[in-house]
Design a protein around this nucleic acid. Structure first.
Length: 897
RNA sequence: GCCGGGGUGGCGGAACGGUAGACGCACGGGACUUAAAAUCCCGGGACUUCGGUCGUAUGGGUUCGAAUCCCAUCCCCGGUACCA
């Protein structure tokens, strides 16, 4: 791919030195590593700051610049906090067990452990290209026995508490990955990671009893500084519903419990519905309905096995012929079965109140079942409802409960039921237990031995780790459907830890989310050999002060890690309730839009296009652009908008913003940027491109702009002429005072912006200050000590962002100790204060003039200044001054009429 | 549907209820150059009778004053999906 020429490649005269990131970057990377510059400090009495990125999964593709939307901001913050005197923990490691590696191993015939080693080394190299200040002495890897030994140990801690158990049931099954947790299933019935279609199967699997913690997982969110969206996603996923269990009795005598959030509508129940899989379906079905019911049940089962296509809203069902008795009024309710009732929620049966539930309303309408209003809508005239009314109103047609509100009715009816043994208050959750079994090789072995006599026996702690055996053949397809560990006979056969008789090891492995549920603890003491973590170290660093990663983990990882933390706490091994105090999600990086040469493309009918020219295709920012921003290679793909234009007689077609995708050949990787513009331009552009939590397109031209800025910084700091004439835009009474003022204002802006994670405006402040330095930095000023002090401070402000260049300039301006060890500058409000301000003069709220005035100007003087202005007089003449609003140092508003 | 987040120049975006468009990109003009690139300087919201007028998705409202607060509507993005 072609790039704009790097600044370092430009011809220059011998006397000047230019900014050459490709020379500077490697020099400092090597020196910092040698000096161990980013070593986490030993315990001290300084305050601590734990800044953590989501545990990355190292893949064969390496990282793209999109990953750096996560890593660069946390790195900047870590650096600033260090300079502010905090002891900072900013570690990195690899969540490396799992399918992408395992599948690649099968495809390439290599072993996953080799791929893991290579891929994580590559990630590390790329993060260093981007100037990451990680303490690599703390690097951890979830696939190493010294790590997963403790994952196993924690599994046993959960097991001891009854929080890990095996159960048989219908589970989502991916033909590639095996069993999946509910959280890993997309709405369209595909696997969350590889998007293959999945089915349901009857399987015996390991689960963690996360449902025991449902309420805590909701309640403890309260004290956390988390994004609203993530807070909401967790609460919604847990899905707590408060209501009542109500017992209906079928005419066969069988009791049918149902859960409802609206016991107040019990008098409006006109039928019941059982899930097709409900165990009582056979009992309540009458002989004359049996054929139809059986056919429906079979069809529903088939539907569950087929891919779950987009739901059609048409609700179907069949009448069983059976009836149940409504406990509040003794009415006979026909019992139906329908697949809109799920066996997996509540009791798998509902009371249907069509007047006050949209689903029941649809069903009743379709099958001609009575719809009886029992909550009166506003201005209700007694007529039949045209749609379900789910709002509040007085109860009607409900016997002694008439007139109660929904809230009071819920309580009154439930208490009435409870007094008669027909029901009680109840809570239900959408959250299911966490399915943790995987029938694959590349994962943590579950430390359990199955023994004919003793049953399930945990492997004693002193026998951990249960090592994952080195297995050559890991392709389940070539093992006749058996999992690789099942086929490893030498490993599977193990004596029972209790009785010593031959037993068999558990052959399922733990899903990767187990590894990422405690790594933040391991980072506190990664070399601890006797325990999973050193309690003092955990007490020192935890909870994580700032946790940053993608919003796609809003439910899964964050919910699991929170549960795991609470479970360890309850096991008595951890004194912590919530692991992540503050959380943020970085925005996605998209591929940039533009215009591309039509003649080089092969265009399909769908508005898609691929580069067909072996030489590639030039892409332009717009049809008037002087230069292409990038040359896309053969087979690069575009989504066209349909707009066309000409550029020098060349036909261009517009393509839109899309995701970065390897198969589209539009992924920008840090390697190519570091090799041209350098790591600093990459970092600074990522910071500058926009708010850090917003999804934004990459821009090669934007990157070039930031490179130009860095070159200007380089030149002004080294006092090099830049080929043009400097011109002061304003006259300054004392340019040294002004220099100091602007510096202190910049320290304030940069510091405050960093605290607010507004890295884009932080860079803008540095750019503005650079522009100011260039404007005023003539030979006289540059010869003063004030200039020298200003440049020193400016470089420190720049250092967390432009890590290599700031260090190089620091050295070149005569410092011997690393700039990254310097204290963060403080600003002085008095020195930052302006002497004058622009008095904005409004008349009736509209700006009519702007007058430069001393900061201390009081209201009376401001008013005379304002009234003296001819431009103001035009709008006030002949009118009465009714009111004056004055904001000191800002504006005056004259209200006339 | 529901839950979150957004709609500001040609583009990415700035803006404690108080100068809308900082900073950057692109573009235009100029300097330098044999020329180009690079670099440097200058200029750009729209209309305008040059007084002003209109401009932050749309329509209302609160306020001396609204991109910002309130109500309604439209559109875009992300998540979710028959949870009784």
């Amino acid at each position: 791919m072609r790039h704009l020429p790097a600044p370092g490649l430009l011809p220059r005269t011998a006397m000047t030195t230019e900014f050459r990131p490709t020379e500077i970057d490697p020099k400092w990377r090597a020196r910092w590593a040698e000096q161990d510059l980013y070593r986490t400090p030993e315990p001290s009495d300084r305050p601590t700051f734990y800044c953590l990125d989501f545990f990355p999964y190292p893949s064969g593709d390496g990282i793209s610049v999109g990953h750096l939307r996560n890593y660069v901001p946390t790195d900047v913050l870590s650096r600033v906090m260090r300079m502010r005197g905090y002891d900072v923990l900013h570690p990195m490691g690899w969540d490396a067990f799992g399918l992408p590696t395992e599948n690649a191993a099968i495809e390439t015939g290599r072993h996953p452990s080799d791929l893991t080693r290579e891929w994580s080394a590559n990630y590390k190299r790329q993060l260093d290209l981007a100037g990451g200040s990680y303490d690599w002495a703390r690097e951890i890897n979830s696939t190493h026995p010294e790590y997963y030994r403790w994952t196993q140990w924690m599994f046993l801690k959960l097991y001891e508490q009854g929080l890990a158990y095996r159960a048989t049931g219908l589970q989502w099954w991916c033909p590639i990955c095996g069993a999946l947790a509910n959280e890993e299933v997309n709405a369209d019935g595909t696997d969350w990671r590889d998007h293959t279609d999945i089915t349901q199967r009857e399987l015996t699997q390991w689960f963690f009893k996360i449902t025991d913690y449902a309420d805590q997982l909701i309640e403890d969110l309260e004290g956390l500084d988390w994004p609203d969206e993530t807070h909401a996603a967790q609460v919604n996923w847990i899905g707590r519903s408060d209501g009542a269990d109500v017992t209906f009795t079928a005419e066969t005598g069988d009791e049918i419990p149902v859960f409802t959030t609206r016991p107040d509508t019990l008098f409006g129940a006109t039928f019941m519905v059982l899930a097709p899989e409900h165990p009582l379906v056979g009992r309540v079905t009458t002989p004359d309905r049996a054929d139809e019911v059986q056919a429906y049940v079979a069809a529903a089962a088939r539907k569950a096995e087929l891919e779950r296509v987009a739901l059609d809203d048409d609700k179907t069902g069949v009448f069983t012929g059976g009836y149940a008795i409504n406990p509040v009024n003794g009415e006979r309710l026909p019992i139906w079965i329908a697949d809109y009732v799920l066996m997996s929620y509540g009791s798998g049966a509902i009371m249907a109140v069509p007047a006050h539930d949209e689903r029941d309303f649809d069903f009743a309408t379709r099958y001609g079942i009575e719809i009886r209003t029992v909550i009166a809508p506003p201005d209700w005239d007694g007529e039949a409802l045209s749609e379900a009314f789910v709002g509040d109103g007085p109860m009607v047609n409900s016997g002694q409960f008439d007139g109660l509100s929904v809230k009071d009715g819920v309580r009154a009816v439930t208490e009435w039921l409870r007094d008669r043994g027909k029901g009680d208050f109840a809570v239900n959750y959408k959250l299911r237990d966490w399915l943790i079994s995987r029938q694959r090789y590349w994962g943590t072995p579950i430390p359990i031995v199955h023994c004919d006599d003793c049953g399930e026996v945990p492997v004693p702690e002193d026998q951990l780790p249960v090592l994952l055996p080195y297995v050559e053949q890991i392709d389940p397809q070539k093992l006749g459907g058996r999992s690789p560990l099942e086929a490893a006979d030498d490993w599977v056969n193990a004596p029972c830890p209790d009785c010593g008789m031959p037993g068999r090891r558990e052959t399922d492995t733990l899903g990767g989310f187990a590894c990422s549920s405690w790594y933040f603890l391991r980072f506190c003491s990664p070399d601890e050999h006797e325990n999973a973590f050193d309690s003092n170290a955990v007490r020192r660093w935890m909870p994580v002060d700032l946790y940053v990663g993608g919003a796609e983990h809003s439910v899964m990882h964050l919910l699991y890690a929170r549960f795991w933390t609470k479970a360890l706490r309850d096991a008595g091994v951890l004194d912590l309730t919530e692991p992540f105090q503050a959380l943020r999600h970085q925005g996605l990086m998209l591929a940039q839009p533009g215009w591309v040469e039509e003649s080089a493309l092969r265009i399909d009918s769908q508005g898609g296009a691929r580069v067909a020219d072996p030489d590639g295709a030039d892409a332009f920012d717009n049809p008037e652009a002087a230069q292409p921003f990038r040359r896309y290679p053969l087979e690069a793909r575009f989504e066209l908008t349909g707009k066309r234009a000409q550029r020098n007689g060349q036909a261009l077609v517009e393509f839109r913003i899309t995701k970065m995708s390897k198969s589209w050949r539009n992924v920008v990787i840090p390697d190519e940027v570091a090799a041209t513009a350098g790591g600093d331009a990459l970092r600074c552009f990522i910071l500058f491109m926009g708010p850090f939590d917003r999804t934004l397109p990459w821009s090669d031209l934007g990157l070039a702009g930031v490179s130009r800025w860095l070159s200007r910084v380089w030149n002004i700091v080294l006092g090099q002429e830049m080929g043009g004439t400097r011109r002061r835009r304003a006259a300054y009474a004392d340019v040294q005072v002004e220099l100091q003022r602007r510096l202190h204002q910049t320290i304030r802006r940069v510091s405050n912006d960093i605290d607010a994670l507004k890295f884009n405006t932080m860079v803008a402040a540095l750019m503005e200050f650079t522009n100011f330095l260039i404007e005023v930095g003539d030979d006289d000023l540059r010869a003063t000590p004030a200039w020298k002090r200003t440049i020193d401070t400016f470089l420190i402000l720049l250092a967390p962002s432009a890590v290599f260049m700031a260090e190089e300039l620091w050295e070149r301006t005569g410092h011997s100790q690393s700039i990254h060890l310097q204290p963060w500058p403080e600003w002085d409000e008095a020195l930052a204060a302006d002497e004058t301000f622009t008095l904005v003069v409004q008349v009736n709220g509209r700006v009519r003039d702007r007058i430069e005035a001393p900061v201390a100007t009081d209201e009376a003087s401001a008013q005379s200044l304002a009234l003296a202005s001819p431009r103001v007089q035009t709008h006030t003449n002949g009118k009465q001054l009714r009111k004056v609003i004055y904001r000191q140092g800002r504006l005056i508003n004259l209200v006339v009429g």
